[in-house]
Nucleic acid binder design. Structure first.
Length: 369
RNA sequence: GGACGGUUACCCAAGUGGACAACGGGGACUGACUGUAAAUCAGUUGGCAGAGGCCUUCGGAGGUUCGAAUCCUUCACCGUCCA
Protein backbone atom coordinates (compact mmCIF):
# COMPACT_ATOMS: atom_id res chain seq x y z
CA UNK A 1 0.00 0.00 0.00
CA UNK A 2 1.08 3.59 -0.74
CA UNK A 3 3.95 2.45 -2.90
CA UNK A 4 4.93 4.75 -5.66
CA UNK A 5 6.21 3.01 -8.73
CA UNK A 6 7.78 4.91 -11.57
CA UNK A 7 7.07 3.32 -14.92
CA UNK A 8 8.57 5.79 -17.36
CA UNK A 9 10.62 8.93 -17.28
CA UNK A 10 11.49 11.55 -19.84
CA UNK A 11 13.98 13.99 -18.37
CA UNK A 12 12.25 15.24 -15.22
CA UNK A 13 8.77 14.13 -16.28
CA UNK A 14 7.57 10.76 -15.03
CA UNK A 15 4.71 8.31 -15.29
CA UNK A 16 4.00 6.51 -12.07
CA UNK A 17 1.40 4.73 -10.04
CA UNK A 18 0.43 5.02 -6.40
CA UNK A 19 -1.59 2.35 -4.62
CA UNK A 20 -4.38 3.38 -2.23
CA UNK A 21 -7.18 1.44 -0.48
CA UNK A 22 -9.59 2.69 -3.14
CA UNK A 23 -7.46 1.85 -6.11
CA UNK A 24 -4.35 2.91 -7.88
CA UNK A 25 -3.80 6.39 -9.21
CA UNK A 26 -1.74 6.79 -12.34
CA UNK A 27 0.37 9.91 -12.48
CA UNK A 28 0.57 12.60 -13.71
CA UNK A 29 -2.93 13.09 -12.38
CA UNK A 30 -5.29 16.02 -12.09
CA UNK A 31 -7.74 15.80 -9.18
CA UNK A 32 -10.84 18.01 -9.25
CA UNK A 33 -11.70 19.70 -5.97
CA UNK A 34 -14.85 18.87 -4.06
CA UNK A 35 -14.39 20.95 -0.94
CA UNK A 36 -17.73 20.16 0.64
CA UNK A 37 -17.82 16.52 -0.43
CA UNK A 38 -19.04 17.41 -3.88
CA UNK A 39 -17.32 18.57 -7.01
CA UNK A 40 -19.62 21.50 -7.61
CA UNK A 41 -22.23 20.99 -10.34
CA UNK A 42 -20.95 17.52 -11.29
CA UNK A 43 -22.27 14.12 -10.18
CA UNK A 44 -19.96 11.24 -9.24
CA UNK A 45 -21.27 9.38 -12.29
CA UNK A 46 -20.20 12.26 -14.50
CA UNK A 47 -16.79 12.29 -12.83
CA UNK A 48 -16.44 8.58 -13.57
CA UNK A 49 -17.29 9.24 -17.18
CA UNK A 50 -14.57 11.89 -17.19
CA UNK A 51 -12.08 9.27 -15.96
CA UNK A 52 -11.40 11.30 -12.84
CA UNK A 53 -9.44 9.03 -10.55
CA UNK A 54 -9.18 11.11 -7.41
CA UNK A 55 -11.03 14.03 -5.86
CA UNK A 56 -10.22 16.40 -3.02
CA UNK A 57 -12.27 17.29 -0.01
CA UNK A 58 -11.59 19.72 2.79
CA UNK A 59 -10.98 19.22 6.49
CA UNK A 60 -11.99 22.68 7.67
CA UNK A 61 -15.21 22.82 5.68
CA UNK A 62 -16.41 19.30 6.45
CA UNK A 63 -15.50 19.67 10.13
CA UNK A 64 -17.74 22.74 10.33
CA UNK A 65 -20.49 21.22 8.20
CA UNK A 66 -21.78 18.54 8.46
CA UNK A 67 -19.11 17.55 11.02
CA UNK A 68 -16.43 14.89 10.69
CA UNK A 69 -17.96 12.69 13.38
CA UNK A 70 -21.24 12.63 11.53
CA UNK A 71 -19.46 11.67 8.32
CA UNK A 72 -17.70 8.86 10.23
CA UNK A 73 -21.02 7.65 11.65
CA UNK A 74 -22.54 7.66 8.18
CA UNK A 75 -19.85 5.35 6.90
CA UNK A 76 -17.02 7.69 5.96
CA UNK A 77 -16.49 10.14 3.15
CA UNK A 78 -16.39 7.62 0.29
CA UNK A 79 -19.78 6.24 1.19
CA UNK A 80 -21.24 9.61 2.18
CA UNK A 81 -20.44 11.27 -1.15
CA UNK A 82 -20.69 8.06 -3.17
CA UNK A 83 -17.20 8.21 -4.59
CA UNK A 84 -15.44 4.87 -4.45
CA UNK A 85 -12.13 5.94 -5.94
CA UNK A 86 -9.34 7.65 -4.04
CA UNK A 87 -10.00 10.80 -2.06
CA UNK A 88 -7.46 13.28 -0.73
CA UNK A 89 -8.36 15.66 2.06
CA UNK A 90 -6.62 18.96 2.51
CA UNK A 91 -5.73 19.69 6.11
CA UNK A 92 -7.21 23.16 6.57
CA UNK A 93 -3.81 24.73 5.99
CA UNK A 94 -5.07 26.59 2.97
CA UNK A 95 -7.82 28.18 5.07
CA UNK A 96 -5.07 29.70 7.22
CA UNK A 97 -4.32 31.67 4.06
CA UNK A 98 -7.74 32.15 2.48
CA UNK A 99 -9.61 33.01 5.68
CA UNK A 100 -6.85 35.24 6.93
CA UNK A 101 -9.20 37.82 8.48
CA UNK A 102 -10.90 35.23 10.67
CA UNK A 103 -8.07 33.36 12.28
CA UNK A 104 -5.26 33.78 14.77
CA UNK A 105 -2.10 31.71 14.55
CA UNK A 106 0.10 30.68 17.45
CA UNK A 107 2.84 28.12 17.78
CA UNK A 108 0.39 25.42 18.80
CA UNK A 109 -2.24 25.90 16.11
CA UNK A 110 -4.89 28.18 14.63
CA UNK A 111 -8.07 29.61 16.09
CA UNK A 112 -10.75 30.21 13.48
CA UNK A 113 -13.96 32.16 13.57
CA UNK A 114 -16.37 30.12 11.51
CA UNK A 115 -17.24 31.79 8.20
CA UNK A 116 -20.69 30.24 8.60
CA UNK A 117 -21.83 31.46 12.01
CA UNK A 118 -18.88 33.20 13.65
CA UNK A 119 -18.36 30.52 16.27
CA UNK A 120 -14.82 29.86 17.46
CA UNK A 121 -12.94 26.70 16.49
CA UNK A 122 -9.46 25.47 17.14
CA UNK A 123 -7.39 23.62 14.58
CA UNK A 124 -4.10 22.04 15.59
CA UNK A 125 -2.02 19.41 13.83
CA UNK A 126 -3.53 16.77 16.13
CA UNK A 127 -7.07 18.02 15.53
CA UNK A 128 -6.60 18.19 11.76
CA UNK A 129 -5.36 14.60 11.69
CA UNK A 130 -8.22 13.44 13.93
CA UNK A 131 -10.74 15.09 11.60
CA UNK A 132 -9.08 13.60 8.53
CA UNK A 133 -9.11 10.17 10.16
CA UNK A 134 -12.82 10.54 10.79
CA UNK A 135 -13.40 11.57 7.20
CA UNK A 136 -11.38 8.60 6.00
CA UNK A 137 -9.71 9.81 2.80
CA UNK A 138 -6.97 7.71 1.19
CA UNK A 139 -4.44 10.51 1.27
CA UNK A 140 -4.42 13.05 4.07
CA UNK A 141 -2.32 16.17 4.34
CA UNK A 142 -0.15 17.53 7.11
CA UNK A 143 -1.54 20.66 8.77
CA UNK A 144 0.60 23.44 7.35
CA UNK A 145 0.59 27.19 7.17
CA UNK A 146 0.08 28.53 3.70
CA UNK A 147 1.55 32.02 3.80
CA UNK A 148 1.60 34.97 1.38
CA UNK A 149 4.50 34.12 -0.95
CA UNK A 150 6.58 37.31 -1.05
CA UNK A 151 7.16 38.14 2.62
CA UNK A 152 10.54 36.76 3.66
CA UNK A 153 10.20 37.06 7.43
CA UNK A 154 6.70 35.67 7.46
CA UNK A 155 7.58 32.88 5.03
CA UNK A 156 10.36 31.77 7.34
CA UNK A 157 8.12 31.79 10.41
CA UNK A 158 5.38 29.89 8.59
CA UNK A 159 7.90 27.39 7.29
CA UNK A 160 9.30 26.68 10.73
CA UNK A 161 5.80 26.23 12.14
CA UNK A 162 4.91 23.98 9.22
CA UNK A 163 7.89 21.77 10.01
CA UNK A 164 6.98 21.53 13.71
CA UNK A 165 3.41 20.79 12.85
CA UNK A 166 4.46 18.13 10.34
CA UNK A 167 6.24 16.22 13.12
CA UNK A 168 3.18 16.49 15.31
CA UNK A 169 0.95 15.25 12.49
CA UNK A 170 3.09 12.14 12.13
CA UNK A 171 2.89 11.50 15.87
CA UNK A 172 -0.87 12.11 15.96
CA UNK A 173 -1.64 9.74 13.13
CA UNK A 174 -3.30 6.48 14.24
CA UNK A 175 -4.83 4.89 11.13
CA UNK A 176 -2.49 3.05 8.85
CA UNK A 177 -4.83 2.84 5.89
CA UNK A 178 -4.26 6.48 5.04
CA UNK A 179 -1.16 8.00 3.50
CA UNK A 180 -0.02 11.21 5.18
CA UNK A 181 1.77 13.65 2.86
CA UNK A 182 4.12 16.34 4.13
CA UNK A 183 4.03 19.86 2.75
CA UNK A 184 6.96 22.05 1.76
CA UNK A 185 6.61 25.78 2.39
CA UNK A 186 8.98 28.77 2.12
CA UNK A 187 7.36 31.29 -0.20
CA UNK A 188 9.36 32.27 -3.27
CA UNK A 189 12.68 32.11 -1.42
CA UNK A 190 15.02 29.46 -2.79
CA UNK A 191 17.03 28.99 0.41
CA UNK A 192 13.86 28.52 2.47
CA UNK A 193 12.39 26.14 -0.07
CA UNK A 194 15.56 24.06 -0.15
CA UNK A 195 15.63 23.90 3.60
CA UNK A 196 11.95 23.04 3.80
CA UNK A 197 12.23 20.32 1.17
CA UNK A 198 15.18 18.84 3.04
CA UNK A 199 13.44 18.91 6.43
CA UNK A 200 10.11 17.59 5.17
CA UNK A 201 11.65 14.83 3.06
CA UNK A 202 13.68 13.65 6.04
CA UNK A 203 10.49 12.82 7.97
CA UNK A 204 9.60 9.68 6.06
CA UNK A 205 6.35 10.73 4.41
CA UNK A 206 5.10 8.45 1.60
CA UNK A 207 4.55 11.54 -0.55
CA UNK A 208 5.43 15.21 -0.62
CA UNK A 209 3.49 18.30 -1.52
CA UNK A 210 4.58 21.76 -2.54
CA UNK A 211 2.30 24.24 -0.84
CA UNK A 212 2.16 28.00 -0.90
CA UNK A 213 2.31 28.35 -4.67
CA UNK A 214 -0.27 29.75 -7.09
CA UNK A 215 -1.24 32.18 -4.37
CA UNK A 216 -0.20 35.44 -6.01
CA UNK A 217 3.49 34.99 -6.90
CA UNK A 218 4.69 35.38 -10.49
CA UNK A 219 4.75 32.44 -12.87
CA UNK A 220 8.50 32.75 -13.05
CA UNK A 221 8.78 32.45 -9.27
CA UNK A 222 6.38 29.55 -9.22
CA UNK A 223 8.23 27.54 -11.86
CA UNK A 224 11.59 28.31 -10.34
CA UNK A 225 10.39 27.28 -6.89
CA UNK A 226 9.16 23.96 -8.27
CA UNK A 227 12.64 23.34 -9.72
CA UNK A 228 14.35 24.23 -6.48
CA UNK A 229 12.11 21.97 -4.39
CA UNK A 230 12.09 19.03 -6.78
CA UNK A 231 15.87 19.06 -6.87
CA UNK A 232 15.77 18.17 -3.17
CA UNK A 233 12.67 15.98 -2.85
CA UNK A 234 13.38 12.26 -3.32
CA UNK A 235 12.37 11.14 -6.81
CA UNK A 236 10.94 7.85 -5.58
CA UNK A 237 8.00 9.49 -3.78
CA UNK A 238 5.06 11.22 -5.47
CA UNK A 239 5.23 15.00 -5.73
CA UNK A 240 2.06 16.92 -5.37
CA UNK A 241 1.80 20.56 -6.46
CA UNK A 242 -1.10 21.88 -4.44
CA UNK A 243 -3.74 24.11 -5.96
CA UNK A 244 -2.50 24.16 -9.54
CA UNK A 245 -4.54 24.47 -12.07
CA UNK A 246 -4.16 26.04 -15.40
CA UNK A 247 -3.54 24.18 -18.64
CA UNK A 248 -0.05 25.61 -18.97
CA UNK A 249 0.87 25.17 -15.29
CA UNK A 250 0.13 21.44 -15.55
CA UNK A 251 2.53 21.15 -18.46
CA UNK A 252 5.17 23.29 -16.78
CA UNK A 253 4.74 21.27 -13.60
CA UNK A 254 5.08 17.84 -15.20
CA UNK A 255 8.07 19.10 -17.11
CA UNK A 256 9.70 19.79 -13.74
CA UNK A 257 8.77 16.46 -12.20
CA UNK A 258 5.35 17.02 -10.60
CA UNK A 259 3.03 14.00 -10.38
CA UNK A 260 -0.17 15.22 -8.74
CA UNK A 261 -2.24 18.38 -9.21
CA UNK A 262 -5.52 19.60 -7.82
CA UNK A 263 -7.40 22.80 -8.51
CA UNK A 264 -10.75 24.51 -8.19
CA UNK A 265 -10.17 26.32 -11.45
CA UNK A 266 -12.05 24.07 -13.89
CA UNK A 267 -15.20 24.07 -11.79
CA UNK A 268 -14.98 27.68 -10.65
CA UNK A 269 -14.31 28.99 -14.14
CA UNK A 270 -17.24 26.90 -15.34
CA UNK A 271 -19.53 28.61 -12.84
CA UNK A 272 -18.05 31.90 -13.98
CA UNK A 273 -18.87 31.15 -17.60
CA UNK A 274 -15.42 30.36 -18.92
CA UNK A 275 -14.17 27.35 -20.86
CA UNK A 276 -10.62 26.05 -20.49
CA UNK A 277 -9.26 24.84 -23.79
CA UNK A 278 -6.03 23.78 -25.46
CA UNK A 279 -5.85 27.21 -27.05
CA UNK A 280 -6.56 29.37 -24.05
CA UNK A 281 -9.62 30.50 -22.22
CA UNK A 282 -12.99 31.27 -23.76
CA UNK A 283 -15.41 33.58 -22.02
CA UNK A 284 -18.42 31.77 -23.37
CA UNK A 285 -20.76 34.64 -22.53
CA UNK A 286 -19.08 36.86 -25.14
CA UNK A 287 -21.56 38.19 -27.67
CA UNK A 288 -19.48 36.76 -30.50
CA UNK A 289 -20.65 33.25 -29.56
CA UNK A 290 -24.36 34.03 -29.82
CA UNK A 291 -24.68 32.36 -33.23
CA UNK A 292 -21.60 30.13 -33.09
CA UNK A 293 -22.61 26.57 -33.92
CA UNK A 294 -19.16 25.11 -33.22
CA UNK A 295 -18.35 23.18 -30.05
CA UNK A 296 -16.02 24.77 -27.50
CA UNK A 297 -13.17 22.76 -29.00
CA UNK A 298 -13.71 20.78 -32.21
CA UNK A 299 -11.17 18.15 -31.17
CA UNK A 300 -12.53 17.70 -27.65
CA UNK A 301 -14.19 14.36 -26.93
CA UNK A 302 -16.12 15.43 -23.83
CA UNK A 303 -19.88 15.08 -23.53
CA UNK A 304 -20.36 18.83 -23.79
CA UNK A 305 -18.35 19.22 -26.97
CA UNK A 306 -19.86 16.12 -28.52
CA UNK A 307 -23.37 17.51 -28.19
CA UNK A 308 -23.61 21.25 -27.68
CA UNK A 309 -22.75 24.41 -29.59
CA UNK A 310 -21.15 27.51 -28.16
CA UNK A 311 -24.39 29.30 -28.99
CA UNK A 312 -26.39 26.90 -26.83
CA UNK A 313 -23.93 27.13 -23.93
CA UNK A 314 -24.01 30.91 -24.16
CA UNK A 315 -27.79 30.80 -24.15
CA UNK A 316 -27.77 28.72 -20.96
CA UNK A 317 -25.41 31.20 -19.34
CA UNK A 318 -27.39 34.27 -20.39
CA UNK A 319 -30.61 32.61 -19.21
CA UNK A 320 -28.88 31.75 -15.93
CA UNK A 321 -29.65 28.08 -16.33
CA UNK A 322 -27.66 25.89 -13.97
CA UNK A 323 -26.98 23.31 -16.67
CA UNK A 324 -24.41 25.81 -18.00
CA UNK A 325 -22.23 25.22 -14.93
CA UNK A 326 -22.51 21.46 -15.29
CA UNK A 327 -21.71 21.34 -19.01
CA UNK A 328 -18.80 23.76 -18.66
CA UNK A 329 -17.46 21.90 -15.61
CA UNK A 330 -17.55 18.65 -17.55
CA UNK A 331 -15.66 20.26 -20.40
CA UNK A 332 -13.07 21.99 -18.19
CA UNK A 333 -12.35 18.91 -16.10
CA UNK A 334 -12.10 16.85 -19.26
CA UNK A 335 -9.62 19.31 -20.72
CA UNK A 336 -7.24 18.94 -17.77
CA UNK A 337 -7.66 15.19 -17.33
CA UNK A 338 -7.20 14.64 -21.03
CA UNK A 339 -4.07 16.76 -20.86
CA UNK A 340 -2.64 14.49 -18.17
CA UNK A 341 -3.32 11.38 -20.22
CA UNK A 342 -1.70 13.02 -23.25
CA UNK A 343 1.32 13.90 -21.15
CA UNK A 344 1.57 10.32 -19.90
CA UNK A 345 1.63 9.07 -23.48
CA UNK A 346 4.27 11.59 -24.44
CA UNK A 347 6.44 10.56 -21.49
CA UNK A 348 6.04 6.90 -22.40
CA UNK A 349 7.06 7.73 -25.96
CA UNK A 350 9.96 9.88 -24.74
CA UNK A 351 8.53 12.80 -26.68
CA UNK A 352 7.46 14.88 -23.75
CA UNK A 353 9.75 17.78 -24.54
CA UNK A 354 8.40 18.38 -28.02
CA UNK A 355 4.86 17.61 -26.93
CA UNK A 356 5.08 20.20 -24.17
CA UNK A 357 6.60 22.86 -26.40
CA UNK A 358 3.95 22.43 -29.05
CA UNK A 359 1.09 22.37 -26.56
CA UNK A 360 2.35 25.51 -24.87
CA UNK A 361 2.80 27.27 -28.20
CA UNK A 362 -0.78 26.50 -29.19
CA UNK A 363 -2.04 27.49 -25.76
CA UNK A 364 -0.17 30.76 -25.66
CA UNK A 365 -1.14 31.71 -29.23
CA UNK A 366 -4.76 31.90 -28.00
CA UNK A 367 -5.97 31.18 -31.52
CA UNK A 368 -9.52 29.92 -31.27
CA UNK A 369 -11.00 27.98 -34.14
C1' G B 1 -66.51 68.22 -23.34
C1' G B 2 -64.21 68.85 -18.20
C1' A B 3 -60.74 67.83 -13.70
C1' C B 4 -56.47 65.99 -12.08
C1' G B 5 -51.91 62.90 -12.76
C1' G B 6 -48.07 61.50 -16.06
C1' U B 7 -44.20 61.52 -20.56
C1' U B 8 -36.26 61.14 -18.10
C1' A B 9 -30.98 57.22 -21.57
C1' C B 10 -32.12 49.95 -24.17
C1' C B 11 -36.14 48.95 -19.97
C1' C B 12 -37.94 50.33 -15.01
C1' A B 13 -37.15 54.53 -12.16
C1' A B 14 -34.98 58.93 -8.99
C1' G B 15 -34.33 63.95 -9.76
C1' U B 16 -38.82 69.72 -9.28
C1' G B 17 -33.84 76.53 -10.96
C1' G B 18 -27.02 76.02 -10.65
C1' A B 19 -23.04 70.57 -7.13
C1' C B 20 -26.84 66.85 -13.81
C1' A B 21 -24.36 63.55 -18.97
C1' A B 22 -28.40 63.12 -14.95
C1' C B 23 -29.07 58.43 -8.12
C1' G B 24 -30.59 53.36 -8.07
C1' G B 25 -32.13 48.66 -10.26
C1' G B 26 -32.56 45.54 -14.57
C1' G B 27 -30.56 44.43 -19.19
C1' A B 28 -26.31 44.62 -22.34
C1' C B 29 -20.95 44.55 -23.01
C1' U B 30 -15.92 43.43 -21.19
C1' G B 31 -12.39 41.54 -17.82
C1' A B 32 -10.63 38.67 -13.48
C1' C B 33 -10.54 34.00 -10.89
C1' U B 34 -5.00 28.39 -9.29
C1' G B 35 -4.81 23.11 -1.82
C1' U B 36 -13.32 27.02 -3.02
C1' A B 37 -16.49 32.28 2.57
C1' A B 38 -16.49 32.45 -5.04
C1' A B 39 -23.50 30.10 -9.64
C1' U B 40 -18.50 35.36 -7.30
C1' C B 41 -16.07 39.98 -8.03
C1' A B 42 -14.65 44.36 -10.92
C1' G B 43 -15.18 47.90 -14.93
C1' U B 44 -18.07 50.10 -19.02
C1' U B 45 -23.07 51.42 -20.70
C1' G B 46 -25.07 59.64 -25.13
C1' G B 47 -20.87 61.12 -28.68
C1' C B 48 -15.81 62.68 -29.26
C1' A B 49 -11.01 63.48 -27.32
C1' G B 50 -10.53 58.76 -24.03
C1' A B 51 -6.52 63.16 -17.15
C1' G B 52 -8.59 67.93 -16.20
C1' G B 53 -11.84 68.66 -21.40
C1' C B 54 -15.50 69.51 -25.53
C1' C B 55 -20.30 68.65 -27.90
C1' U B 56 -25.57 66.86 -28.09
C1' U B 57 -29.64 65.11 -24.45
C1' C B 58 -34.80 64.54 -20.08
C1' G B 59 -42.36 63.88 -25.30
C1' G B 60 -42.56 68.40 -29.50
C1' A B 61 -42.40 73.73 -30.20
C1' G B 62 -41.90 78.42 -28.03
C1' G B 63 -40.86 81.47 -23.67
C1' U B 64 -38.88 83.30 -18.58
C1' U B 65 -33.83 83.39 -16.42
C1' C B 66 -26.96 84.93 -15.98
C1' G B 67 -28.45 79.67 -15.78
C1' A B 68 -33.91 74.86 -17.01
C1' A B 69 -34.87 67.75 -16.80
C1' U B 70 -36.82 71.22 -13.02
C1' C B 71 -40.79 77.54 -13.91
C1' C B 72 -44.58 79.51 -17.86
C1' U B 73 -47.49 78.91 -22.67
C1' U B 74 -49.05 75.66 -26.21
C1' C B 75 -49.42 71.03 -28.91
C1' A B 76 -49.19 65.60 -28.90
C1' C B 77 -49.76 61.06 -26.45
C1' C B 78 -50.90 57.86 -21.95
C1' G B 79 -53.70 57.01 -17.22
C1' U B 80 -57.66 57.82 -13.54
C1' C B 81 -62.12 60.23 -12.47
C1' C B 82 -66.58 63.44 -13.81
C1' A B 83 -70.12 64.31 -17.81
Amino acid sequence: MFEFTIHNTDNYARVGSFKTPHGEIITPIFAPVGTQATVKAVTPAQLEELSASMVLANTYHLYLRPGDELVAKLGGLHHFMQWQKPILTDSGGFQVFSLTDMRKIDEDGVTFKSHIDGSTHRLTPEKSIAIQENLGADIIMAFDECAPPNDLAYSKEAMIRTHMWAERCIKAKKRNDQALFGIVQGGVFADLREESARVISSMGFPGHAIGGLSVGESKKDMYHTIEVVNAVLPPDKPRYLMGVGTFEDLIEGVWRGIDIFDCVLPTRLARHNAAMTRYGRLNVMNASFATDEKPLDKECQCYTCQHFSRAYLRHLIVAKEMLAATLLSIHNIHTLIHLTTDMRLAIQNKTFDSYAKEALTIYRSKKTQ
